[in-house]
Nucleic acid binder design. Sequence first.
DNA 1: TCCAAGTCAATATG
DNA 2: CATATTGACTTGGA
Length: 479
Amino acid sequence: APESPMSSSESVKSLTELVQQPCPAIETSKDSKPQESSEPPASESQSTTPLPLSGHSALSIQELVAMSPELDTYGITKRVKEVLTDNNLGQRLFGETILGLTQGSVSDLLARPKPWHKLSLKGREPFVRMQLWLNDPNNVEKLMDMKRMEKKAYMKRRHSSVSDSQSCESSSVGIDYSQGASPQPQHQLKKPRVVLAPEEKEALKRAYQQKPYPSPKTIEELATQLNLKTSTVINWFHNYRSRIRRELFIEEIQAGSQGQAGSSDSPSARSNRAVHSSEGDSCDGVDTEGPPEGKQSGLEADEYNNATTKSQGGQAESTFEVGEEALQDVRSSEKTESFHLGMESLEDTDDEGRLKAPRQSSPPGSQSSGETLETMPNSATEEDASTSAASTSVLTGESSYKSKESSERISSVPSTSSTLATGSQKTNSIQSLFNFSEAASSKNTRDNTLRKKKAANLNNIIHRLEKAASREEPVEWEF
DNA sequence: TCCAAGTCAATATG
DNA sequence: CATATTGACTTGGA
């Protein structure tokens, strides 16, 4: 799609404003320059952007996204979730109406937003839309109206009867045929949807741990041994890899947020699925990272950052002022501190202790790659591993497991500093950096108290930093 | 071609 | 009913 002729370019300000996120904390601090801009260019919309795009703006979202300042994805999703639940609005409606995404996608996005700097242009779009929606004073009302409309339409339809012409956009139906012969999937035209059995997943995970990027040969073997289609195995690896990766991002963000120390928890906090899938995610960072560029053998966390940091940050002006710079230093030093505090016993241990279950091997054909999948005789699968952390550790002799991830993540937080460069305007960068302010939702895997302690400690530090930050830098939200 | 990032859409769960 | 999970598909880049 060749699109936009390019035009605007200096309307950036207005755009920025459009998308800008309301400073969470203080705000009201001084206002700003009046100079509103005008909205001149208005290149009319083209094909893309079928969505409402809340009100005004004649620019395509793509353009908005392109010039959007760095957004706090975590904060945005958090607020969206609040608004939606507070008003009894579902993800489906919101997704279809505002984001142009399906319910499942919305759920995923809201639950696991990736940090802005790790999103592609496309991936940023939904967040820009959400921000736009949040900024729209009538957002809730509009959605409510939609809801009502839908209901009405539904009633009508259900009531059998009559005409069908409502003013609704997405109208209905379409699905011709009928069901005539009952709920019977006619000619099985629809693929059955593969569902991997727990044992199969386990086997795949194990294989992944040994080799995140299996060779075609290995894939074939796996497929054969597990009795799956090759494509299924391939897809599984793709999905698993990217989902693991995403988890890491999440933790990265959350580690940075974390509400204040104490228990408390602000208003709505939920939203943390405790233990996700069993096993310690392993992620075994080991290499895995595709582009093996200059990876300095260090912690993997750094690797990630290096790899991604540059990402799209177009201009990298590091326009910092003295004060900020100092701030940065403080932060980083603190980070180290926290790092240590948080670490303690569980360094980056990758390797994942667990697993190693005493399975009896002897799979049919496992050879070379040394995989030993399948087999899985029993039930002692994942659940056990995750639930009984204690036992696991005992068995393996060490903890690692779960906590490891968080500590790693924590260590990576500070790395954000590199990200800093990406920000367009210093204010923004700084802001976003500390923006996690009270995030409240801490996801402690209620595991051990030790961990909690560490977390509390960390929170403290972070909190103090935030304080310091706001003190030194009178956040001004304009541009 | 392979990979990653986004999504969809079926199906699990709550 | 709504939300969460997940195998498969689509795009876009080397």
